[in-house]
Amino acid sequence: MDKQKSLREAVRSLHDGMVIGVGGWGARRKPMALVREILRSDLKDLTLVAYGGPEVGMLCAAGKVRKVIYGFVSLDKIPLEPYFRKARESGAIEVMELDEGMFLLGLRAAAEGVPFAPTRIGMGTDVLTHNPELRLVTSPYDAEDVLVAMPALKPDISLIHVSRADRRGNVQTDGRDPYFDNLIARAASRVIVSAEEVHDRLDLTHSHMAQKSLFDRSVVETVVAAPFGAHPTTAHDAYGWDMAHLKTYCDGARQEGGWDAYLRDYVGADEPTYLDRVGGVDAIRTLSIPNL
Protein backbone atom coordinates (compact mmCIF):
# COMPACT_ATOMS: atom_id res chain seq x y z
CA MET A 1 0.00 0.00 0.00
CA ASP A 2 1.50 3.30 -1.10
CA LYS A 3 -0.61 6.47 -0.98
CA GLN A 4 2.20 8.84 -1.75
CA LYS A 5 1.76 11.15 -4.72
CA SER A 6 3.46 14.25 -5.96
CA LEU A 7 1.96 17.61 -5.08
CA ARG A 8 0.84 18.06 -8.67
CA GLU A 9 -0.79 14.63 -8.89
CA ALA A 10 -2.58 15.21 -5.60
CA VAL A 11 -4.07 18.50 -6.74
CA ARG A 12 -5.07 16.93 -10.04
CA SER A 13 -7.49 14.73 -8.09
CA LEU A 14 -9.52 17.82 -7.14
CA HIS A 15 -12.37 19.15 -9.27
CA ASP A 16 -14.01 22.47 -10.00
CA GLY A 17 -16.89 23.15 -7.63
CA MET A 18 -15.58 20.93 -4.83
CA VAL A 19 -16.22 21.62 -1.16
CA ILE A 20 -12.75 21.59 0.40
CA GLY A 21 -12.08 21.38 4.14
CA VAL A 22 -8.81 22.89 5.32
CA GLY A 23 -7.08 21.92 8.58
CA GLY A 24 -5.17 24.22 10.91
CA TRP A 25 -6.29 27.40 12.63
CA GLY A 26 -5.70 30.96 11.39
CA ALA A 27 -2.00 31.31 10.64
CA ARG A 28 -1.22 27.92 12.16
CA ARG A 29 -0.48 24.62 10.41
CA LYS A 30 -2.14 25.37 7.11
CA PRO A 31 -1.48 23.05 4.15
CA MET A 32 0.01 25.92 2.17
CA ALA A 33 2.02 23.85 -0.32
CA LEU A 34 -1.26 22.24 -1.46
CA VAL A 35 -2.90 25.65 -1.51
CA ARG A 36 -0.10 27.07 -3.67
CA GLU A 37 -0.43 24.11 -6.03
CA ILE A 38 -4.15 24.94 -6.33
CA LEU A 39 -3.11 28.52 -7.13
CA ARG A 40 -0.94 27.12 -9.95
CA SER A 41 -3.86 25.05 -11.29
CA ASP A 42 -7.03 25.90 -13.23
CA LEU A 43 -9.34 24.85 -10.38
CA LYS A 44 -12.26 27.18 -9.70
CA ASP A 45 -15.67 27.58 -8.02
CA LEU A 46 -14.40 26.08 -4.79
CA THR A 47 -16.21 26.15 -1.47
CA LEU A 48 -13.83 26.36 1.48
CA VAL A 49 -14.63 25.07 4.96
CA ALA A 50 -12.09 26.33 7.49
CA TYR A 51 -10.98 28.09 10.61
CA GLY A 52 -9.50 30.30 7.97
CA GLY A 53 -6.09 31.86 7.52
CA PRO A 54 -4.04 32.95 4.51
CA GLU A 55 -5.31 30.04 2.40
CA VAL A 56 -8.73 31.67 2.29
CA GLY A 57 -7.34 35.08 1.31
CA MET A 58 -5.02 33.65 -1.36
CA LEU A 59 -7.65 31.46 -2.98
CA CYS A 60 -10.14 34.38 -2.93
CA ALA A 61 -7.54 36.71 -4.44
CA ALA A 62 -6.96 34.19 -7.23
CA GLY A 63 -10.68 34.09 -8.03
CA LYS A 64 -10.99 30.40 -7.21
CA VAL A 65 -13.59 30.67 -4.50
CA ARG A 66 -17.37 30.68 -4.80
CA LYS A 67 -18.20 30.36 -1.12
CA VAL A 68 -16.46 30.30 2.26
CA ILE A 69 -17.89 28.53 5.31
CA TYR A 70 -15.91 29.70 8.32
CA GLY A 71 -15.60 30.18 12.04
CA PHE A 72 -13.27 33.09 11.29
CA VAL A 73 -10.66 34.21 8.78
CA SER A 74 -7.61 35.76 10.42
CA LEU A 75 -3.82 35.82 10.37
CA ASP A 76 -3.61 35.90 14.20
CA LYS A 77 -1.08 38.70 14.79
CA ILE A 78 -2.56 40.43 11.76
CA PRO A 79 -6.22 40.18 12.75
CA LEU A 80 -7.82 40.95 9.38
CA GLU A 81 -7.03 38.86 6.29
CA PRO A 82 -6.79 41.61 3.63
CA TYR A 83 -7.74 39.62 0.53
CA PHE A 84 -10.65 37.95 2.28
CA ARG A 85 -11.73 41.42 3.34
CA LYS A 86 -11.54 42.63 -0.26
CA ALA A 87 -13.56 39.67 -1.47
CA ARG A 88 -16.23 40.36 1.16
CA GLU A 89 -16.37 44.10 0.58
CA SER A 90 -16.68 43.66 -3.19
CA GLY A 91 -19.43 41.09 -2.75
CA ALA A 92 -17.39 38.61 -4.81
CA ILE A 93 -18.03 35.57 -2.61
CA GLU A 94 -20.87 33.89 -0.80
CA VAL A 95 -20.31 33.20 2.86
CA MET A 96 -21.66 31.14 5.70
CA GLU A 97 -20.30 32.99 8.72
CA LEU A 98 -20.63 30.89 11.86
CA ASP A 99 -19.72 31.03 15.50
CA GLU A 100 -16.46 29.11 16.02
CA GLY A 101 -18.22 26.54 18.20
CA MET A 102 -21.13 26.08 15.78
CA PHE A 103 -18.58 25.39 13.08
CA LEU A 104 -17.05 22.68 15.28
CA LEU A 105 -20.51 21.19 15.90
CA GLY A 106 -21.23 21.14 12.16
CA LEU A 107 -18.01 19.22 11.51
CA ARG A 108 -18.77 16.84 14.36
CA ALA A 109 -22.26 16.17 13.00
CA ALA A 110 -20.74 15.30 9.63
CA ALA A 111 -18.17 13.10 11.34
CA GLU A 112 -20.94 11.31 13.25
CA GLY A 113 -23.09 10.91 10.17
CA VAL A 114 -26.06 12.84 11.57
CA PRO A 115 -27.75 15.65 9.62
CA PHE A 116 -27.46 18.31 12.32
CA ALA A 117 -26.31 19.08 15.83
CA PRO A 118 -28.74 20.76 18.25
CA THR A 119 -27.26 23.79 19.97
CA ARG A 120 -28.24 27.04 21.64
CA ILE A 121 -25.38 28.83 19.93
CA GLY A 122 -26.63 31.34 17.40
CA MET A 123 -29.92 31.95 19.23
CA GLY A 124 -30.53 35.64 19.77
CA THR A 125 -27.99 36.67 17.12
CA ASP A 126 -27.81 37.63 13.46
CA VAL A 127 -26.06 34.35 12.66
CA LEU A 128 -29.62 33.11 12.06
CA THR A 129 -30.57 36.25 10.09
CA HIS A 130 -27.64 35.97 7.68
CA ASN A 131 -27.75 32.19 7.30
CA PRO A 132 -31.42 31.71 6.46
CA GLU A 133 -30.77 28.05 5.71
CA LEU A 134 -30.29 27.45 9.45
CA ARG A 135 -33.43 25.97 10.98
CA LEU A 136 -34.68 25.74 14.53
CA VAL A 137 -35.84 22.54 16.19
CA THR A 138 -38.00 22.04 19.25
CA SER A 139 -36.78 19.55 21.80
CA PRO A 140 -38.89 16.38 21.80
CA TYR A 141 -38.41 16.33 25.58
CA ASP A 142 -39.48 19.88 26.43
CA ALA A 143 -41.28 22.15 23.99
CA GLU A 144 -39.84 25.28 25.58
CA ASP A 145 -36.36 24.27 24.46
CA VAL A 146 -35.97 25.69 20.98
CA LEU A 147 -32.55 25.06 19.50
CA VAL A 148 -30.58 25.74 16.35
CA ALA A 149 -30.19 22.67 14.14
CA MET A 150 -26.61 23.24 13.04
CA PRO A 151 -26.33 21.33 9.74
CA ALA A 152 -23.53 18.85 9.17
CA LEU A 153 -20.59 20.47 7.37
CA LYS A 154 -19.35 17.81 5.03
CA PRO A 155 -16.43 18.70 2.78
CA ASP A 156 -15.91 16.55 -0.33
CA ILE A 157 -12.27 16.32 0.65
CA SER A 158 -10.00 17.89 3.27
CA LEU A 159 -6.42 19.15 3.06
CA ILE A 160 -4.40 18.78 6.27
CA HIS A 161 -0.76 19.47 7.05
CA VAL A 162 1.00 17.08 9.44
CA SER A 163 4.48 16.74 10.87
CA ARG A 164 5.11 13.29 9.49
CA ALA A 165 3.31 10.59 7.61
CA ASP A 166 4.14 7.23 6.14
CA ARG A 167 3.30 5.86 2.72
CA ARG A 168 0.38 3.89 4.15
CA GLY A 169 -1.28 7.10 5.38
CA ASN A 170 -0.44 6.97 9.08
CA VAL A 171 0.15 10.46 10.43
CA GLN A 172 1.65 12.28 13.40
CA THR A 173 1.18 15.93 14.28
CA ASP A 174 3.57 17.67 16.67
CA GLY A 175 2.72 20.73 18.68
CA ARG A 176 0.71 21.73 21.67
CA ASP A 177 -2.71 22.10 20.05
CA PRO A 178 -4.40 19.60 17.72
CA TYR A 179 -6.91 22.31 16.71
CA PHE A 180 -9.75 20.49 14.95
CA ASP A 181 -7.84 18.54 12.33
CA ASN A 182 -9.40 15.31 13.58
CA LEU A 183 -12.89 16.64 12.82
CA ILE A 184 -11.89 18.24 9.51
CA ALA A 185 -10.57 14.80 8.54
CA ARG A 186 -13.54 12.79 9.81
CA ALA A 187 -16.14 15.18 8.43
CA ALA A 188 -14.79 14.75 4.92
CA SER A 189 -13.70 11.10 5.17
CA ARG A 190 -11.34 11.77 2.26
CA VAL A 191 -8.11 13.54 3.11
CA ILE A 192 -4.99 14.68 1.33
CA VAL A 193 -2.25 15.12 3.90
CA SER A 194 0.85 17.15 3.23
CA ALA A 195 3.70 16.18 5.53
CA GLU A 196 6.96 17.75 6.60
CA GLU A 197 8.44 14.25 6.31
CA VAL A 198 7.25 11.06 4.66
CA HIS A 199 8.61 7.79 6.05
CA ASP A 200 8.17 4.19 4.98
CA ARG A 201 6.64 2.89 8.19
CA LEU A 202 5.97 5.12 11.22
CA ASP A 203 5.35 2.01 13.33
CA LEU A 204 8.94 0.96 12.73
CA THR A 205 10.61 4.34 13.15
CA HIS A 206 8.31 6.56 15.27
CA SER A 207 6.37 4.09 17.36
CA HIS A 208 6.97 6.06 20.57
CA MET A 209 5.17 9.08 19.11
CA ALA A 210 1.99 7.28 18.09
CA GLN A 211 -0.15 9.41 20.43
CA LYS A 212 0.52 12.31 18.12
CA SER A 213 -1.75 10.71 15.54
CA LEU A 214 -4.92 12.81 15.16
CA PHE A 215 -6.77 10.48 12.75
CA ASP A 216 -6.23 7.04 11.34
CA ARG A 217 -5.19 6.15 7.83
CA SER A 218 -8.61 4.87 6.72
CA VAL A 219 -9.59 8.46 5.87
CA VAL A 220 -6.26 9.32 4.26
CA GLU A 221 -6.47 9.01 0.52
CA THR A 222 -3.22 10.70 -0.47
CA VAL A 223 0.08 11.53 1.17
CA VAL A 224 2.27 14.30 -0.21
CA ALA A 225 5.79 15.15 0.92
CA ALA A 226 5.83 18.89 1.54
CA PRO A 227 8.81 19.99 3.62
CA PHE A 228 8.18 23.52 4.90
CA GLY A 229 4.77 23.09 3.33
CA ALA A 230 2.99 25.12 6.02
CA HIS A 231 5.05 28.26 5.37
CA PRO A 232 4.21 31.13 5.94
CA THR A 233 2.06 29.60 8.73
CA THR A 234 3.50 27.62 11.65
CA ALA A 235 4.27 23.93 11.67
CA HIS A 236 4.81 23.15 15.33
CA ASP A 237 7.45 22.17 16.38
CA ALA A 238 9.48 22.57 13.19
CA TYR A 239 9.15 26.31 12.52
CA GLY A 240 7.08 29.33 13.46
CA TRP A 241 4.99 31.60 11.29
CA ASP A 242 6.71 34.09 9.00
CA MET A 243 5.08 37.36 10.00
CA ALA A 244 7.48 39.40 7.86
CA HIS A 245 6.39 37.44 4.80
CA LEU A 246 2.72 37.65 5.78
CA LYS A 247 3.11 41.40 6.14
CA THR A 248 4.57 41.61 2.62
CA TYR A 249 1.65 39.53 1.39
CA CYS A 250 -0.81 41.84 3.17
CA ASP A 251 0.86 44.99 1.87
CA GLY A 252 0.25 43.71 -1.65
CA ALA A 253 -3.49 43.85 -1.06
CA ARG A 254 -3.25 47.63 -0.85
CA GLN A 255 -1.38 47.97 -4.15
CA GLU A 256 -2.65 47.85 -7.69
CA GLY A 257 -1.59 44.50 -9.12
CA GLY A 258 -0.35 43.39 -5.70
CA TRP A 259 -1.79 39.91 -5.95
CA ASP A 260 -0.36 39.27 -9.41
CA ALA A 261 3.01 40.41 -8.12
CA TYR A 262 2.71 37.98 -5.18
CA LEU A 263 1.92 35.11 -7.54
CA ARG A 264 4.80 36.01 -9.82
CA ASP A 265 7.41 36.90 -7.19
CA TYR A 266 6.71 34.16 -4.65
CA VAL A 267 4.30 31.38 -5.63
CA GLY A 268 6.19 30.73 -8.87
CA ALA A 269 6.21 27.46 -10.77
CA ASP A 270 6.83 24.99 -7.96
CA GLU A 271 7.63 24.58 -4.27
CA PRO A 272 11.44 24.56 -4.48
CA THR A 273 11.21 27.90 -6.31
CA TYR A 274 8.83 29.25 -3.67
CA LEU A 275 11.04 28.18 -0.77
CA ASP A 276 14.07 29.83 -2.37
CA ARG A 277 12.20 33.04 -3.00
CA VAL A 278 10.95 33.38 0.56
CA GLY A 279 14.48 33.19 1.89
CA GLY A 280 15.39 29.51 1.76
CA VAL A 281 14.81 26.59 4.08
CA ASP A 282 17.59 27.51 6.51
CA ALA A 283 15.85 30.82 7.18
CA ILE A 284 12.48 29.11 7.61
CA ARG A 285 14.00 26.71 10.13
CA THR A 286 14.98 29.65 12.33
CA LEU A 287 11.46 31.14 12.51
CA SER A 288 10.51 30.90 16.16
CA ILE A 289 7.31 29.31 17.37
CA PRO A 290 4.88 32.07 18.32
CA ASN A 291 4.09 32.79 21.94
CA LEU A 292 1.34 35.28 22.54
Binding site: F72, F84, L98, D99, G101, T125, V127
Partner: peptide
Protein backbone atom coordinates in the same frame (compact mmCIF):
# COMPACT_ATOMS: atom_id res chain seq x y z
CA UNK B 1 -15.35 43.51 6.87
CA UNK B 2 -14.01 42.96 10.38
CA UNK B 3 -13.41 39.73 12.29
CA UNK B 4 -16.63 37.83 11.71
CA UNK B 5 -18.81 36.76 14.64
CA UNK B 6 -15.96 34.56 15.99
CA UNK B 7 -16.96 33.10 19.37
CA UNK B 8 -19.35 35.86 20.40
CA UNK B 9 -22.65 33.99 19.83
CA UNK B 10 -21.59 31.00 21.93
CA UNK B 11 -19.89 33.10 24.58
CA UNK B 12 -22.93 35.32 25.01
CA UNK B 13 -25.34 32.50 25.83
Amino acid sequence: QMLGVRGFPGNSI
